[in-house]
Design a binder for these strands. Sequence first.
DNA 1: TTGTGTTTTATTGCCTCC
DNA 2: GGAGGCAATAAAACACAA
Length: 318
Amino acid sequence: MAARSYLYGGDSGSDAVGGGGGSGFSSVMLTNKRVSSSSSKPLDSFFVSGSSHSFVGSRSMVSFEDKRNGSSGSFFRTFDQEDNGDDEYDDYFHHPEKKRRLKADQVQFLEKSFETENKLEPERKIQLAKELGLQPRQIAIWFQNRRARWKTKQLEKDYDVLQESYNQLKANYENLLQEKEKLKSEVLDLSDKLLLQETEKGTSDSSSTKSPFEPLQQEHVADCVNDEDVTKTSNDGIQSLLERGDSSYLFEQDQSDESLDEEDNFGKMFVTPVSGYMLPKIENGEYPELDAVNSCYLGFNGHDQDGSEDQSFGFWPY
DNA sequence: TTGTGTTTTATTGCCTCC
DNA sequence: GGAGGCAATAAAACACAA
């Protein structure tokens, strides 16, 4: 073990109460195992608990509460002040391995001190030990354990917050999925209508100019719409077109029909060559709404990069 | 009364800081 | 290298249902 000094009981703690399961009364159990420069000088273990005592020994250093017999009273009891001193003497000296809990008022005092500052400076440790009639080491241990409990509570709170956030995100994601399905069916419906329209137009006028939808076969559109990764595919198609500088597939608005543009911004849309989706047209080198369209995939596409299923899009702090 | 789960007190070992 | 903090853990004390 690293350098650690023991005031009593010699070496590490095979004979100490607690981890070692050994014996040893307060001279072991309540002893500063570590010697610190500030508070764990050898006399620390014999810390005087009350202002009226210059030295009262280990008995008065501990002021435990035994809830079973309801003993209570001042923090600063001494042997002389005990009502049933002999019995408690037996408790302390003949059952050396027993731990005693701090009294409720001692705990309350420590809690208030912890509220103001959860770290313990040596001076404050000494002061608290004086006021409570405990050893500085006990104060330090109490604060240490209290910090651990506080941390656990904080983690629980953080977990709850994250859980709530996750639930909200999940709900949003499910809403977006529903919305996406709805939009899909709308796109499919409109594509059908347009194709029908083009077909009728084609039969009546076979020499008309090519429709921008001509490359799109209806079954192809349907296939693409059913594609799980359709939005990503759409984006890929757009990117490849942009890289090729090929804008011939972009759906150009019929300039003669201004009312259509005003009513539904149809002219700001184009049909993707691969999936047949209508998407916002590029403006200033950016897709104004494409990021928003794809955002759900980036965050919640439910697939790993290798394509495997990954339904656990939640995040856990541990 | 007893078995069992939880809380509290304390130890141990490791780590960081000065 | 010493002092102190923290995580892990032990064990006593406590709570409570059966």
